[in-house]
């Protein structure tokens, strides 16, 4: 049997994007929550909780981008021009919040500036990612291997809604991460924020889910036609289960359960999008097979990815293991 390489690669890219969303999601979320923690000491601890891992988390975004160019060049070449402004906004947000990790410790006088850069950049990046998602879901017109819309087409009420949903969702990931990684008053306030964000996130997921089927006939068919409609029952049920685990975890002051439940919400939301999308890479017209690179490209990179991705996961896990446990508030920066 011939291997369906574009299908395998769609799975790998989907995995990379999901890994990015949940990993960078919590460290962007920590940045989004900065305004709720005005004390310098709290902010130092918050930043230290993600400083050793943020760079690795962001590398999944580079894999998403670089990988897309490698294996689905046509998708890369049409999505990015179509989403020009949000993509530029996202990278500019990531610049500000990325350099803040180091700059913030290099100055007293301008520390406030890099606090702003960290939280503002995180928020801008999250919003832009959410808008990108929404704009992709609502579809990108492609003709003759090129994007044919205007450069403001991405801006719709739906994409603004998904933008807000991602900001709230990342804030939830960030808050539950802080619950897991910090002590005392900081953790208590993170618990309070996590509770609010969990209702916000599930509400946003609900609104987006009710909206999505009416954007494209295909989505409507997927959601309410047999057999895929089964998922339309199962996924919301699992979402409610995660919400329950999240709230009871926060209430019972459990350290890690809220974070894991929040990850669950993200995985479910992501699966919901995946179910709507398949087999399209760029709705409404480009399938994963249309967008795929020649087989020689797919197989060349696949050989490496099958060996390297498990190794990457192993040493990434090691790095998280080294920095396991609560952040020591007395421990300084490097």
């Amino acid at each position: 049997m011939e291997l369906d390489l574009p299908f395998i690669w769609a799975g790998i890219i989907a995995f990379a994007v999901l890994a990015y969303v949940i990993l960078d999601g919590f460290d962007l979320g920590v940045g989004i929550l900065f305004p709720f923690f005005p004390e310098k000491h709290d902010r130092d601890v918050m930043m230290n909780s993600v400083a050793p891992v943020w760079d690795g988390n962001e590398t999944w975004l580079v894999l998403g981008g670089g990988g897309l160019m490698a294996v689905f060049p046509l998708a890369y070449a049409t999505i990015l021009p179509a989403l020009y402004a949000p993509i530029i906004a996202m990278v500019i947000g990531l610049i500000f919040r990325g350099v803040a990790f180091e700059y913030r410790w290099r100055t007293r006088r301008a520390e406030y500036l890099w606090n702003w850069a960290f939280s503002g950049g995180s928020m801008l990046a999250a919003l832009a990612q959410g808008i990108t998602l929404g704009a992709l879901v609502q579809g990108i017109p492609v003709e003759n291997r090129a994007y044919v819309g205007g450069w403001w087409d991405w801006l719709t009420p739906f994409s603004i809604m998904t933008g807000i949903a991602v900001v709230v969702g990342y804030a939830l990931l960030g808050a539950t991460w802080l619950v897991m990684k910090t002590h005392g008053d900081l953790a208590d306030r993170a618990r309070d924020l996590a509770l609010k964000c969990s209702f916000g996130t599930v509400a946003a997921m609900g609104i987006v889910s009710l909206w999505t089927p009416f954007l494209e006939p295909q989505y409507l068919e997927r959601w309410f036609g047999f057999p895929t409609a089964i998922f339309s029952v199962i996924v919301p049920a699992l979402v409610l289960g995660c919400l329950y685990a999240l709230i009871t975890g926060i209430r019972s002051r459990h350290d890690s359960r809220p974070f894991i439940a929040a990850l669950g919400l993200f995985v479910l939301g992501y699966a919901g999008i995946g179910i709507s999308f398949y087999p399209y890479m760029v709705p409404p017209s480009m399938t994963i097979w249309d967008a795929a690179a020649p087989e020689e490209s797919l197989s060349f990179l696949l050989a490496g990815a099958l060996v390297l991705v498990p190794i990457i996961l192993a040493y990434t896990a090691y790095s998280y293991w080294v920095f396991r446990g609560k952040v020591d508030p007395e421990e300084g920066y490097h």
Binding site: D55, G56, E58, T59, V62, L63, G66, G67, M69, A70, V71, P73, L74, Y76, A77, L80, R145, A293, P294, E296, S297, F300, L301, G304, A305, L308, V309, I312, Y315, T316, Y318, S319
Partner: peptide, 26 residues
């Protein structure tokens, strides 16, 4: 990107997989 992606893309993909993750992870 569309035209040269099938060649440039995998080279950059290998850069991410073999180098960027290694640097960032450690």
């Amino acid at each position: 990107s569309d035209k040269a992606g099938p060649i440039i893309g995998p080279l950059m993909g290998y850069e991410v997989l073999t180098a960027f993750f290694l640097e960032a992870g450690f």
